[in-house]
């Protein structure tokens, strides 16, 4: 049985090299006492089996479906799949979500993933199911957890409700640089993010040309964080893009009320006033912007010149 012994030895050597010795330790995960419910299950997530290389479009279709849109993985291939790489980039998941009028907010820690799940939000997670040197990148959708069993529940590949040990998941997720995202309707805030993070997600809706959705998101953010200066500027900008200059004016004035020394708010107010035909007030606001500018005042001077000329 010498041959058998040698084979076993060779296999063990391959396994050792393949996994890297350090990773042979049993996965352990320490979740601090977070006041999380012991288990959570997100309902209303449609299941699409992930066929071939279309795990990205399928994962996105599942969360968009949960958010109230009826889309299919096939319908998302054009926006989220890159033929030359036979796969989906995380950035295209974010971009395609925005193009559907949805807030895409990144989640970066395991406790935050669990918090989103307990708030009823499914989470797209980007895992490396392979090894660092033999990577196999994969998008799955986390839909629940059970702290008592130490398990996470995933919609992954062709399995609905695949249960994975939290420690195992955390490793495959860490190997994917802990990239995860919640995809939310614009009137729903993530459970974990700060105001600036959500404002950035709403600004992404502006980038994608979804100005009405962006405005809804900014209103929601400003309700939750009434002092959020970026949210009020965003609200003004979205309304301005929609051609609602009265409402834009109102948002910029709310921003100014909270932060009277920000030249950007005065600059944008000047443009809104000009569009409303209030020329003198517009020039006055533009002048205020120039007087408040620190550093390079070039763009504020340009606004003042343009509005004075007309």
């Amino acid at each position: 049985m010498i041959h058998g012994g040698r084979l076993l030895l060779a296999a063990a050597a391959v396994a050792l090299v393949a996994t890297g010795c350090s990773t042979l330790a049993r996965p352990r995960i320490e979740l601090p006492r977070l006041g999380l419910p012991p288990r959570a299950e997100v309902t209303g997530v449609p299941f699409f089996p992930q066929e071939d290389d279309y795990c990205g479009p399928a994962a996105l279709a599942m969360v968009l479906g949960w958010s109230g849109l009826s889309v299919t993985p096939e319908g998302l291939v054009g926006q989220a799949f890159t033929p030359g790489r036979e796969g989906t980039f995380p950035s295209d998941i974010v971009g395609a979500a925005r193009r559907h009028g949805r807030l895409a907010v990144l989640v970066t820690t395991l406790p935050d993933v669990l918090r989103e799940l307990s708030a009823g939000h499914p989470v797209i997670v980007f895992q490396n199911l392979g090894l660092s040197w033999l990577p196999r990148w994969h998008f799955a959708v986390a839909v629940g957890y059970d702290l008592g069993r130490g398990e996470l529940s995933l919609y992954s590949r062709r399995e609905r409700g695949r249960r994975v040990a939290l420690g195992t998941f955390d490793r495959t997720w860490a190997r994917g640089n802990r990239w995860a995202v919640v995809v939310l309707p614009p009137h729903v805030l993530p459970a974990t993010a700060e105001d600036r993070t959500v404002v950035a997600a709403a600004a992404g809706l502006e980038r994608a040309g979804r100005f009405a959705d962006a405005a809804t998101a900014y209103v929601t953010i400003a309700d939750r964080w009434p002092d959020s200066y970026p949210a009020l500027i965003g609200l003004g900008n979205a309304r301005y893009a929609l051609g609602d200059f009265d409402a834009a004016d109102d948002a910029y004035r709310r921003a100014i009320a909270g932060r009277p020394h920000e030249p950007a708010a005065w600059n944008n107010l000047a443009h809104a006033l000009a569009r409303r035909g209030r020329r003198e007030e517009a020039v006055e606001a533009a002048r205020t912007a120039v007087s408040l500018a620190w550093g390079d005042a070039g763009r504020y001077e340009a606004t003042l010149q343009e509005l004075s000329r007309e």
């Binding site: 502006e206 980038r207 970026p230 600059n267 944008n268 070039g298 763009r299 001077e301 340009a302 343009e306």
Partner: peptide
């Protein structure tokens, strides 16, 4: 510079 709105991204 070009006159125009300061974008939300720039404010952030």
């Amino acid at each position: 510079a070009f006159a125009g709105l300061v974008s939300t991204e720039e404010v952030l």
